[in-house]
Simulated assay, not measured.
Amino acid sequence: MRQSGLNVSVAALLLLQLVLLLTVGALAQQHDFPPEQVIVNLDLPPKQRWTQVATKYSAQIQATVNFLKQLIPMHDLVLPVANVIGADIDNYLPMPYSDEIRGVAEAARITLGEAVLCNIIYDITSFCTSIVAQMGNGTIIHARNLDYGPLQGVLRNMTIEVFFQTNGSTLFYGTTFAGYTGILTGVRPNVFGVTINERDMGNILENALQALLKKEAVPLSFMLRDALANDTVTFESAVRFYSRTQLIAPVYVIVSGTQPGEGVVITRDRQYILDIWRLDPAAQSWYVVETNSDNWNPGQDIRLETAHKSLDALGPNGINPYSIYQVLSTAPVLNNGTVYTTVMSASHPEWFSTMVRLDIPPYP
């Protein structure tokens, strides 16, 4: 039940205190931990798929909404536009996402506008490091840190591994946040893996909402999930799809496959592909690292420089799930804003592993 006046302020304060206690309790342990694993049953009506997750994490979801209202200039544009989209959600967001977001809003006891905001903000405001590398035996491995500065404390307690199933079989899986129906980190077993990194180009949140109002583009994380859910998808067809779909915001899409050489970084603006950067082991380009800058103009990014040095020191024969995790655990690639680290390989589904990061090494 949503109330007004003083009761709203008191309820919001109590909610924030609850989530801070949860966060501090986890932080006090100062140990990395694996997130909860959940199943989303795609055979259920979309509105029911996330009910159990959103109900369990409702306090954290509500606290995130309240934090966002303080963090973003909500009242002049952002929240009113999100409310417009929420009020007519079927005309702005495709199925099944519109109904899934309805279900999240009801279970978490937030408005549809707030649920819309939560379902687009993570994929356009996160700072990340993604790596695709070819091991000495030709195996492709893909790993990422997801960094999210101001919200990292809350998000660490909302990180989940989701296995999307139909008829009891897993079609694809990934790492996401409770209440968030899209995918930022995902794998279609034996086909491809994918991550996205923010490409910061201007007042990105307001522009993204305006793009949604024009009904010409889709949220980035929905695009990722659409390809992961496609039964006929291949590595190359996924690359083409991610290169051509009109988006609400610029982005880097990092895609890995199962065969030698299958690794790319796609640099996108909202409408067009700007660059595609592929693995080329024959030319000694056996890995790609993407943070949050164009590969032809990286500037001075200490995360990028540190990752390059670590990978060069290892070489192709030194790369494996453990060593690439260590690369992503080296400061400042791993930093105070890092929420989680995922290691995965489409050709080795058993390698999929996520750790929520609390043990942050000091950076000299």
Rank of each mutant, 00 (worst) to 15 (best):
S310P: 01
Q29C: 13
N167H: 15
H308R: 13
N7F: 07
G182H: 04
W277S: 10
A11W: 04
M344F: 11
R109T: 01
H75V: 11
S98V: 02
D123T: 10
V19S: 01
T245V: 15
R270C: 15
L155E: 03
T267P: 03
P34C: 11
N7C: 02
A211Y: 03
K214H: 10
C118M: 09
G261M: 07
G113I: 01
A178L: 05
V191E: 06
L42F: 07
L247S: 14
P80H: 02
W50G: 02
A331C: 12
I140D: 08
Y287S: 05
Q134C: 04
G179N: 04
A11H: 06
H348L: 11
L279D: 07
A217C: 10
N295W: 08
L209K: 05
P189I: 02
T338R: 06
Q326Y: 10
K309Y: 13
V333R: 03
S58K: 13
A28T: 11
G179T: 02
V10Y: 09
L155Y: 03
D294Q: 05
Y180W: 07
G138E: 05
R2F: 03
P361F: 08
M223F: 08
Q246L: 07
Q300A: 14
G193A: 14
V288C: 08
E236M: 04
E114T: 00
V65Q: 00
A54C: 07
L205F: 00
L27A: 15
E350Y: 06
L93R: 07
T258E: 03
L44R: 15
L304I: 04
F192W: 02
Q284V: 02
W351N: 05
G263C: 01
S256T: 10
V339I: 12
A249G: 05
V251W: 00
T234E: 13
S347V: 09
G186A: 10
E290G: 07
